[in-house]
Structures are given as structure tokens and as C-alpha cells.
Design a protein around this nucleic acid. Structure first.
Length: 834
RNA sequence: GCCGAAGUGGCGGAACUGGCAGACGCGCACGUUUGAGGGGCGUGUGGGGUAACCCGUGGGGGUUCGAGUCCCCCCUUCGGCACCA
């Protein structure tokens, strides 16, 4: 049942008023103040897709609560916002509606910025950046140039999704069940020349630093470690039988199992395959197999619940450990992109090899002693080596070392560390992205653009059809240029950069967004960085966060900044769902922030989203929950209105308060303590419930009848309570708090006021409740002094009249006393109480 | 298939390091204010039982004086994934 809102607090006037005041006074504008502690709070900047949704609101409400809290604790709080403005949806809008991507993007930015302002998030809007602004991407192009000079950016062939209908490259998301999402053509793979960043060069450092990021969720670090995928082992050659000089290089993490190899496998794309074909008949079979595998996606090739496809070649490989000749296969489960693209197969100690061997009738040799009863599958555990020549009797670890030593000694192989991480392909054959600043010169070759000629500006006047190559390839004024080195006629690169590049350094630009001398002012970066709190969705746990870490290290090594890691603390928030599903237009379960703000106000939205679930978990949208949050703020407002006149008087004197006064004051200071630790630990839901309790307790205290002395002290205690409540409420409902603060007669913003500190004297208790159990069951509760001696408490518990019946005809075996908490009387015997 | 997280009232969720399970909110019921509705205020609200009490944190075992919390097995749900040699 919806509320009749004639009686609600005037949130609209309040929110508009304070948003204006904040803007006019520049309250959230910050600059470096050397010597003052800083707090850089950042939410992942959004893609300007059209309108913000409740997931954004949740993200910003979290970041804003933290920033405002930290400011009240005296930190110089940087809280910037910008736009991850390049990307595919803008091009799709252009194709579907004929609107230019730039127009579409900037319109969306204007809309979303207005929405954010209506939420009253405390951003320093002077620092706003959009990645599609040439003043932003010129520095990205400069970084590219420096990376190219260092060999960290290079070109190689890449396999892409190709739509023969549109004659264009497709992103994974544009491929639906193997078909183009636009024209429904069957998608094929195609190799094209692409630009790459050598992130693999940083694999080891990125991995090592995973152990030095205690402020990151462990599960994110685990995902990053697994993505980097370090494995240690050996790389060596398997000679091809009867083909001197020809060998397959294989990588293995289990060189100790080499005596157990019963076949070998090449990835179907392996360049050696062509040389191994013995005749036209086999050539045709191989080509057919390769075509078959090319149709499989990598996900399919890596799926466990489908049979592994294989094609046996006539050529045979030789096991260098014992000279055995082995069958040689092409198989889909071996990928060219990992290791050497060829493996020795040891079915005894690898389950994938076991499955393949069983399907193809290949022998299985056990090289590790099985535990008793082990049967029917590969054994990957430790044990004593068997059937392994000179490795017999060793443990797996010993045998690994010895096998590697042997390979090295024989000159056959090397110890090798391998990473699953691949270099980062950044070329996109698309329009709406930052141009790659490279020029192809007939005489000088591939040349980086000269820094003083940057930015290479994306031309505006293009036709976007979704067909053919990059639209800027058809703009002669863009493509035709002069060589930065020799000045002769040359051609520009027409690929643009992956938008993940744009978002890999924006947090640095926020430190000095108008800086014209480079990507960011070093002093500003050294003052503000690292980001103290980064908050966003778990979907970015790997790619964005890994790329940003990589970029930070690259910029350090290029000499720009002394900074190893960009994000000190990371928080990954849960999704906002409705009816159990993620909000989306197609499901029709979207709740619009605009409607919401009109009906309830921004403060209610924030309080609801922070209160209804712990922030790391999914939040189920609930209209009734919203009503609850709205009711709470109205209650605060009403209470304030009716008791304002009764506030004031001297500050409470803790020493000579009446008993109810002391009890009430303890509640106030307990709330300070709870809300403070809860915010520090991201428990916003329990912080807000503590505020509920404070409001309830204040209401009871204000209306209960007291004797005259107690009633006189009430005004000053209520004043302290209300003052505290307003400050504690400020991070969650900033507009309302600001309004009440002003009504309390304060001239400065509540965000310039200090965060309250709990008075230890007020927290002291003169009595505690102790639970008394008999055999673990609660029988009574005693109210005692907190300093009561242990044996006195024991005696009182044993003598209690509620306890005694439970001890009749039973013997007390022992008494467990937990001071200040409980007494548990443990008995022995058969008597039961009568 | 593997890895990770989580299963607590009618619902969202609390519960520090093993110490009163269910804070706070929603919903519901009754009362009160009101011409009425809405709203406000008050009381109650895990299940069973007149009561004393008993039973209760996905299921089953275990450790412990004491388990939502720790250990083992199982079930379910949700996330992530890379058959990575």
C-alpha cells in the first residue's frame, strides 16, 4: 500500500537546496594539501549507456558514504567521477538510429550527470573526464608511443570472429550461437594483424603483488592468480621418428611422469602440422579436422562434458627418456595459445589424457604408486615413482628435479616457467575508440607518431554502417599523412584501442585532470595515489583490475610515477536484483532512479540500498523496504520538529547524571562506537540499524515520565543525542542531515563538522546481565556488578532459586564461569527437577 | 567437471574471538488517534504447549561444559572458470 505522502518531510526542497549550496560553495572541490592526510575514494566510472540504474546508485551510495565519513574524520577526500565514453554501443546506436556516436555519447553523459547530481553524490565535478575527449586520449596515445618504443606494444597476427555478411570483425558479444547478431551469417575465424601489449612481461610481478594487497578481497586475488596461471616445469623436444632435425617442443609441469607418456598431441593449428603430413590423403583429413576444430569456440574445446576430438597422424614421436616411439595426434583439447601448443600425454597421471587414451584405445602406464584401492582414473597425487627408469623410488618432487637435471644435462631441454596469461590484444577495427598513433611508411616501415603531433584526432565526419572495415579507413584526410620520420607520404593505422586501455589509467588523470604537460602531474599523483578505496562490481575482478595494475607498473617503469599498485583497498559490491533476476529492460523489472527520486528522494534511496543487505551481497529490490527507509527518515524529521524547542542547556555532566540519564547517554555513545566500526568494516546495514535504535531510544527517553531532577537534565542529553544522530546520519542521508544541522543553528556544513567520538566513561556499565545455564540450558539470568569476583558469581548462581531445583539429586561436576557473560553448571547424576 | 561463496522466522537480514539464536527493518494481528481512509502512536509476533517446559540456524555424524559459528560426510542454491599440459 503506497503512502499518502501529504505528510512527509519536504525532501524535494531540502535536496534541491543542499545540492545547490554544495555546488555554490564548492564543498567537494579539493586540491593537494601536503601534510594533510588524503583519502582517494573511487567508484568505477560508468559507460554512458543512457541512464543510470539502481546498481549504479548502490555503487555511488557506498562510495559517497565512505567519502563523507572520511571527510568528517579530517581527511582531504578526493571523490571524482568521469565517463568511460568510447565503446561499441555508441556505434550500434549510430547504425540503428543514424545518430553520431559522439552526439549519442555526450547526450547520455548529460543525462547521467544530471541524475548523479540529483542523487547528491559528493563528486568534485571540476575533475570530470570523458575518455572520448581528445585531451584525454592524447595522453593515452603518448603512453602507447612510449610503450612501442620500449617494445611493450607490438604487432602480430590475431584470430578474430569474422562475419562474411557484414565483412567485419565481431566482438564476442556480437556472436550469438555462432552467428552474427546483426545479419545472422555464420561467423568464421580469421587471422588479422593486431596490436598487442606485452602484459606477459609483467606476469611474475602481477602475481607476486597479489600477496601484497591485503585490502583486496581474497576471492578476487584468487581469480587474478588463476588467470595469470603460473606453472613450473620443463620444456623439451620430442624428436619425430625418422625425420632428423624435426622435433615437437613440449611443455610439461610433470617431467617426472615422462616415462609414462604413451602418445603426444599437437594443437590442430600448430605450424609443424604441415611438415608432418605424408601425402594428399592425410592432408585432406588434416584440413577437414582443422576446419572442424576451427568451428569450435575455445569454451567448447575446453568443456569437460564433451568427448575430446582427435586425429591420429602417420608420423610418430620419440620419447627421449627411453627411446619409445609414440603415436602422434592432433586434438582439440590442446590449444596453440598456451605453452608450446604441443604436449606429451601421460594418461596415468593426467585425467584429460586418461579420457583421450580410453577413447582411442591407447595404453596407460602408471608412474606413481597408487594408494590402495585407486582405480579407474588418473592419479595426480604424490607417491613413489615406479616404471620410471632412473627415477624409480623417488617422490614426485624429487623426480621432477632429477628429470629436469637429466634433460638439461643431455642438452634436450630446460626448466621452464609458464604463464597462462596471454598478451593483451588492443586493436579494434572500430570507429568509436582512440586511434592507435602509428604510421606505416613505405620507406621507414612502422613508425610511432611524434608526441608533438598528438593527439591523432578521431575524424568526426564518417559513415557508420556496421559493414566493412573501420569507418576511418574511408576518410582520406585521416589515412593519408606524412611519415613522422622521413616526412614522405604515409598511411595511418586505422585500428582504434580497446576501451579497457582507456580505463586503465583514468584514476591517474583524476589527480590532475586539466594537466597539459603530460598524462598527470607527478606531484598530484604522488599526493593522491594510490586510490584508498576502489568500489565496483565483481564482473571486473579480472580484466579491468589486472590491466589497471599492469598499466600502473608500466608507467612506473617508463619513469612517470613512483607507484607500484593503483588500488590500496578494493570492495566488490553485489548486484541489485528484482524478483530474483538482474534488472534489465528485457525482463521489464527495471526501477528507475528518476521516478524514485521524485517519489521518495535521494536520501531514501541511499538509505534503502545501504540498509537492506550487506553491500557485498546481492540486493533484492523491495518496494516495502523502500517505504521502510522513507518512514525512518520521516520519523527522524518529525522527532526533530517536535523536540527542537526542548533542546539545549549545559553539556551533560557525566559524573552526576541520574540513572535513566546515564543509561540513555550510554546508548548514545554505544551508537557512536557501533556506527563507526560498522562503517570501517563496510557493514552499512548494521550501522543504519544502530541509528534506528538510537532514534527509538531517544524517542522513548524524550517521552517517558521522569522525576524532576532527571527531567531537568533531559534537555541537555537530548541535545547531545540529536547532535550525534545528525552527524552519524550524514554519510547515509546527507541532505536531511545537512538540513537538520542548519536547524540546530550551525553555520558550517555538517561535512566540515567532526565525526563524534564515543566517551569511554559513558560506555561504562554499572551492572551486567549474566546468563546462568545448567548443563548448557539457560535457567536464569543474574544482574551483577561487572567487577564481581568469579567465585562470588559462582556461589550466587548455585544458590539461585531458579537454579536449585535443577540440581536436586544431581552432583555438580564442574562450573564454567565466563566473566561478564555466563555461568554454566555441569551436573552428573539421574535426578530430575520436581 | 573444477574452484569459490552461501543455506538462519512469513520476508530482507543480525549474532564480537565457540557463550542468551532471530538485533534492526518489512509483513501481519490487536489497540489507540481520526468523520473515514491513509498516516501517526502503542502492544504483540520462530514452532509446539493452559503451563512448567520442550523443539528449533539445509540433512546426518563428531569435537566441546557449551556449536548458526569448529571438523567430517551429504544435499541445495548462487557466482567464477581455463581440459592450461
Amino acid at each position: 500500500m503506497a503512502l499518502d505522502r501529504t505528510d512527509h518531510y519536504p525532501f524535494r526542497e531540502i535536496e534541491t537546496k543542499w545540492q545547490r549550496v554544495w555546488e555554490e560553495t564548492g564543498l567537494f572541490r579539493v586540491r593537494e594539501e601536503p601534510g594533510r592526510p588524503k583519502f582517494y575514494c573511487l567508484e568505477m566510472f560508468p559507460y554512458p549507456s543512457g541512464r543510470i540504474h539502481m546498481g549504479h546508485v548502490r555503487n555511488y551510495a557506498i562510495g559517497d558514504a565512505i567519502t563523507r565519513y572520511k571527510r568528517m574524520r579530517g581527511y582531504n577526500g578526493l571523490h571524482p567521477m568521469g565517463w568511460d565514453a568510447f565503446g561499441l554501443p555508441a556505434e550500434n546506436a549510430a547504425i540503428d538510429n543514424g545518430v553520431h556516436p559522439a552526439v549519442w555519447t555526450y547526450e547520455n553523459i548529460a543525462t547521467m550527470k544530471a541524475q548523479m547530481k540529483a542523487l547528491g553524490i559528493s563528486y568534485d565535478w571540476d575533475r570530470e573526464v570523458a575518455t572520448c575527449d581528445p585531451e584525454y586520449y592524447r595522453w593515452e596515445q603518448l603512453i602507447f608511443v612510449r610503450m612501442f618504443e620500449r617494445g611493450l606494444a607490438y604487432r602480430k597476427s590475431a584470430r578474430v570472429n569474422w562475419c562474411p555478411g557484414c565483412q567485419t570483425v565481431l566482438a564476442n558479444e556480437q556472436v550469438e550461437a555462432g552467428r552474427c547478431w546483426r545479419c545472422d551469417s555464420e561467423v568464421v575465424t580469421k587471422d588479422i594483424e593486431s596490436w598487442y601489449f606485452k602484459i606477459t612481461e609483467y606476469a611474475e610481478e602481477l602475481l607476486e603483488w597479489c600477496d601484497r594487497l591485503p585490502g583486496w578481497p581474497e576471492r578476487v586475488l584468487t581469480m587474478q592468480r588463476n588467470w595469470i596461471g603460473k606453472s613450473e616445469g620443463a620444456e623439451f623436444d620430442l624428436p619425430v621418428a625418422g625425420r632428423p632435425g624435426l622435433a615437437l617442443r613440449v611443455f610439461t609441469t610433470r617431467p617426472d611422469t615422462s616415462f609414462g607418456m604413451t602418445y603426444a598431441v599437437l594443437a590442430p593449428e600448430h605450424p609443424l602440422v604441415a611438415q608432418l603430413i605424408t601425402g594428399p590423403e592425410e592432408g585432406a583429413a588434416v584440413a577437414a579436422f582443422q576446419a572442424e576444430v576451427a568451428r569450435e569456440t575455445e569454451i567448447e574445446r575446453l568443456a569437460t562434458d564433451r568427448p575430446k576430438r582427435g586425429l591420429r597422424l602417420q608420423a610418430r614421436a620419440v620419447n627421449p627418456f627411453n627411446g619409445a616411439e609414440l603415436p602422434l595426434f592432433l586434438a582439440d583439447y590442446v590449444l596453440m595459445g598456451y605453452g608450446t601448443g604441443a604436449i606429451m600425454a601421460v594418461p596415468g597421471e593426467d585425467q584429460r589424457d586418461w579420457d583421450f587414451a580410453e577413447a582411442h584405445g591407447l595404453p596407460i602406464i602408471e608412474t606413481v604408486q597408487r594408494p590402495p584401492g585407486w582405480t579407474g582414473q588418473a592419479y595426480m597425487g604424490d607417491g613413489v615413482k615406479i616404471n620410471s627408469g632412473f627415477l624409480d623410488g623417488l617422490t614426485v618432487a624429487e623426480a621432477k628435479r632429477k628429470a629436469i637435471d637429466w634433460l638439461v644435462g643431455q642438452g634436450l631441454g630446460v626448466a621452464k616457467v609458464n604463464y597462462r596469461l596471454r598478451d593483451w590484444g588492443i586493436s579494434r577495427q572500430r570507429y568509436w575508440g582512440a586511434p592507435i598513433p602509428i604510421v606505416y611508411c613505405p620507406s621507414c616501415g612502422t613508425v610511432a607518431e611524434r608526441p608533438e603531433r598528438l593527439p591523432v584526432v578521431l575524424p568526426q565526419d564518417v559513415q557508420i554502417t556496421g559493414k566493412g572495415g573501420s569507418p576511418i579507413a574511408d576518410v582520406p584526410g585521416f589515412v593519408n599523412t606524412t611519415c613522422p620520420r622521413c616526412g614522405g607520404p604515409a598511411r595511418r593505422e586505422t585500428d582504434t584501442m580497446d576501451t579497457f586501455v582507456d580505463s586503465s589509467w583514468y584514476f591517474l588523470r583524476f589527480c590532475s585532470p586539466q594537466h597539459v604537460g603530460g598524462l598527470a602531474d607527478a606531484d598530484a599523483v604522488h599526493y593522491w595515489m594510490p586510490v584508498d578505496q576502489y568500489t565496483g562490481g565483481i564482473e571486473h575482478a579480472i580484466l579491468h583490475l589486472l590491466y589497471a595494475r599492469f598499466y600502473t607498473k608500466v608507467l612506473r617503469d617508463l619513469g612517470y610515477f613512483k607507484l607500484d599498485e593503483p588500488f590500496q583497498n578494493l570492495f566488490t559490491q553485489g548486484m541489485v536484483v528484482k524478483d530474483g533476476a538482474k534488472m534489465s529492460k528485457s525482463k521489464g523489472n527495471v526501477v528507475s532512479p528518476d521516478d524514485f527520486i521524485v517519489t521518495y528522494g535521494a536520501d531514501t534511496g541511499r538509505v534503502f540500498e545501504l540498509f537492506m543487505a550487506p553491500p557485498e551481497k546481492d540486493l533484492e529490490w523491495s518496494d516495502q523496504g523502500v517505504e521502510g527507509a522513507f518512514r525512518f527518515l520521516n520519523r527522524v524529521w518529525r522527532f526533530f520538529q517536535s523536540h527542537r524547542a526542548a533542546l539545549g542547556g549545559a553539556a551533560p555532566r557525566p559524573g552526576d547524571l541520574s540513572a535513566p540519564g546515564r543509561a540513555f547517554r550510554r546508548t548514545v555513545h554505544e551508537t557512536i562506537r557501533r556506527v563507526t566500526t560498522d562503517i570501517e568494516e563496510f557493514h552499512f546495514n548494521t550501522a543504519i540499524s544502530a541509528l534506528h535504535e538510537l532514534v527509538n531510544a531517544t524517542h522513548v527517553y524524550a517521552t517517558e515520565s521522569l522525576d524532576r531532577a532527571a527531567a531537568e537534565e533531559r534537555a541537555s542529553l537530548l541535545a547531545e543525542s540529536i547532535d550525534t544522530l545528525v552527524r552519524l546520519l550524514a554519510p547515509f542521508a546527507p541532505h536531511l542531515a545537512e538540513e537538520l544541522w542548519e536547524k540546530l543553528g550551525r553555520r558550517e556544513s555538517v561535512f566540515r563538522a567532526s565525526w563524534p567520538v564515543a566517551d569511554p566513561a559513558a560506555l561504562e556499565r554499572d551492572a551486567v546481565q549474566v546468563v546462568v545455564q545448567v548443563d548448557g540450558r539457560v535457567r536464569t539470568r543474574l544482574v551483577v556488578s561487572p567487577e564481581i569476583a568469579e567465585d562470588r558469581l559462582r556461589t550466587e548462581a548455585l544458590a539461585d532459586e531458579k537454579v536449585r531445583p535443577w540440581l536436586q539429586a544431581r552432583e555438580v561436576a564442574r562450573v564454567v564461569v565466563v566473566p561478564g557473560r555466563l555461568v554454566n553448571i555441569v551436573t552428573r547424576g539421574s535426578g530430575t527437577p520436581t
